[in-house]
Every structure is written in C-alpha cells, then in structure tokens.
Amino acid sequence: MENRHSIGIFDSGYGGLTIFKSIIGKLPEYNYIYLGDNARTPYGDHSFETVYRYTLECVEWLFSQGCPLVILACNTASAKALRSIQQNVLPYKYPGRRVLGVIRPTAEVIGNYTDSKTVGVLGTRGTVKSASYLMEISKFYPEIRVLQQSCPMWVPLVENNEHLGPGADYFVEKYIGRILEADDRIDCLLLACTHYPLLIPKIRKILPENIRLMAQGEIVADSLGDYLNRHPEIEQIIAKEGIRKFFTSGDTENFDRHTSVFFGEHVASEPMSVG
C-alpha cells in the first residue's frame, strides 16, 4: 500500500459523527472517510445476523476505498459484529487490514470514572441485549457492578431533531429514573450510543451532581491515537493531508442537513449503494 490511504469511520447513521468530531479534534492531520448506513438505520433492534451482514458490507466497502483501518463508531455494530469480523474475516480475507470498535476502549478506562464501583450503561436494545459491556468491563474491572438500561426512544428523538424540544423530557426522565432506581450506588453513567451525547443538556438537568456522565468521543480518540503510535505499519501508510470525505447509503441532502447537529459543521456527502 502506498502512503495515500484514509482511516475509515463507520456508523449505522449520524451518531458516529460525534465520535468522528472528537477524533478530528485529537488527530486532525490524517485523511478520513466517513460512511453512514442511513438507508438501513437504526441497527439497534436488528438481529445479530443482520447487523453483522450490514456492518461487514460497509467495512468491505471502506476497504475497497483503500482504508487499512476502520473504526466502528457504533456501539451496536461493535457489540454484534466486531468480534466475528476480527476473528472470522480479517485473518483469512484481509490479513493486512484492521477493524476496531468503541466498546473495548471504554471498558479499559471506565474504572477511572467510578468510586463506588457501580456503573450504569445506557444503550440501544441491541447493545444491552448483547451484554458486551458486562463482559468487557469484567475483563478489566471484575469488581465493578454494571447495570444496563435500554433507551429505545432516544435515537428516534435525536434522528428527528427533537432531542432539545420539550417532548424529549419525558423519555430522558423515564430511562434515567429507571437506571438510578436499580441501584442507588451508581456514580457513573455511560452513554453507550453515539447519538446520546446530544441529550447531555437534558440529562444533566435531572442527574444528581455526584454522578459522572461518561461520553465516548474523547476516549475513542485517545485510544485511536495510542493504537497508531503502537502500530507504525498502519500509521505510516495513512495520508496526512487532512482530507475528509463523507458517504451515506441514504439521501445525501438529508444527511448533509443533519451534520450540523452531529458534527458541528456542514458537509457535502456522496452517495454509496449497499445491499
């Protein structure tokens, strides 16, 4: 591979743009290709088999664009597809490529955010059902008690730009109330979905001051920087021109309108066909 390649960033829709924004803040010099599978979002309620198939199709498309490294900036894809891709596809079909997720980097540092050793995880139904956070956190911090709460209405609220309106208050209070009632020792809440940071203003209004709110953007960005430092064979073939390209399997005009909310700036996306 010549030194003209990009880092691929994948999400089922818009949420991964919040991760991408943090990555650019830490590592602006690299070239990136962002792909949102908006035509088939949300992934949260799909089966493991469907999420795996969709994710693999998108990862392989990013590989075809010359990305030697792909970040699954999606908790559901990380929970339901990452391990199978890493173990069953890459060694045999793409031995020189790498795919990383957002769950392991978060699990590695979550112990720094809790004093009571009791944390709550807020995620999609798919992420919660996979129990991926329970398994990963237990590897690094077996003493931490993890409670989970699915928040099925949060992604639709954010996707429809209703997250700051009064209609979102009920569902924010509903899911936060449920997780805090499960154990009064919780002192850290993890937003285990890339859409959820957009609800932080409403969450903070009702969250007790002693409870830390943990978003993943900075954590994933730091982890990627560390990975590139430890893997010069990957880092050295990625172009450093600061070029960012955006693709969506959905409507480009709709995608571009949403980027100002998730990414903080307007972009011009290109279409990509899947399925």
Results as ranks from 00 to 15, higher is better:
Ile144Gly: 03
Ile9His: 02
Leu90Gly: 06
Glu265Phe: 01
Thr114Arg: 03
Ile237Ala: 06
Cys58Val: 09
Val274Leu: 15
Arg98Gln: 15
Glu181Leu: 14
Asn75Arg: 10
Gly264Val: 09
Val220Ile: 15
Ile186Trp: 08
Gly165Ser: 14
Gln65Asp: 02
Arg83Trp: 13
Leu100Ser: 03
Gly177Pro: 00
Lys139Ser: 10
Glu162Ser: 08
Ala215Val: 06
Leu191Ile: 07
Ala107Lys: 05
Tyr133Leu: 09
His195Lys: 13
His5Cys: 12
Gly242Ile: 01
Cys74Gln: 03
Arg4Leu: 13
Met153Trp: 04
Ala182Thr: 12
Leu134Ser: 12
Arg230Gln: 13
Ser22Glu: 14
Tyr54Gln: 02
Ile234Asn: 04
Leu17Cys: 02
Gly25Ser: 08
Cys193Asn: 08
Val155Ser: 04
Arg53Asn: 13
Glu241Met: 11
Ile7Gln: 04
His46Ala: 04
Ala39Pro: 02
Arg98Cys: 14
Ala268Phe: 12
Tyr92His: 12
Lys139Val: 12
Ile176Gly: 06
Asp45Met: 06
Ala192Lys: 05
Lys21Ile: 00
Gly123Ile: 02
Leu35Ala: 09
Thr55Pro: 03
Gly177Phe: 02
Phe263Cys: 08
Asn229Gln: 15
Ile7Ala: 03
Glu159Pro: 03
Tyr43Met: 08
Tyr170Trp: 09
Arg185His: 10
